[in-house]
């Protein structure tokens, strides 16, 4: 995918891609690190429909959501021939009891039979995280298991 990088002298940098539907989506990063999500207007591709300021946390989470979407789709595709095996993504929310704890502390595999196959943080994938992996708010966990197991895993992550 080609990312257009356009310097904005005195302000920062614009990075955007053109989607197959012809919309420009990207970010404007200012010198002081302030980042905004931009989406082009439909009737005027030169202009922006919105320019939404994002904090570092929000940008990382958004990146995870979009990146994980693809990862989950890929895993689901691979598990298609195995009935009963599901893939789901869970966000470690800000108030999660496991924010700052080890993945092993959740006892997820023992209690629900599910496995965390990947964790996404700030747009990067950590494949097969070990039990020592420290969970942080904003992380996105890609979990494989049965439907019931996944429901139970969701309860654990949100409530403990």
């Amino acid at each position: 995918m080609k990312v257009d990088k356009t310097p904005l002298p005195g302000i920062g940098m614009r990075k955007d891609i053109v989607t197959s539907s012809g919309r420009r989506i990207g970010t404007v990063t200012q010198r002081d690190g302030e980042t905004a999500l931009i989406i082009s207007r439909q009737d005027d591709p030169d202009a922006c429909l919105v320019s939404i300021p994002l904090t570092a946390d929000e940008a990382a989470t958004l990146g995870n959501l979009l990146g994980a979407h693809q990862l989950v789709a890929q895993l689901t595709e691979e598990h298609r021939d195995l009935p009963g095996v599901n893939t789901r993504q869970f966000l470690v929310a800000g108030g999660s009891p496991f924010d700052g704890y080890r993945l092993g502390d959740t006892l997820m595999r023992t209690r629900t039979g599910t496995s965390v196959v990947a964790a996404m943080r700030e747009g990067k994938v950590e494949p097969s995280p070990s039990p020592d992996f420290i969970l942080l708010a904003g992380d996105l966990l890609i979990v494989v298991g049965t439907a019931e197991g996944l429901d139970a895993a969701a309860d654990i992550l949100s409530g403990g």
Partner: peptide
């Protein structure tokens, strides 16, 4: 100019780099 472009959310517009390089 920079204030107006920022306030009106036009930093991501295609014509903005043109305006800025004229200012440069």
């Amino acid at each position: 100019v920079a204030k107006v472009l920022t306030d009106l959310g036009r930093l991501g517009n295609r014509e903005t780099p043109v305006v800025l390089s004229l200012l440069v």
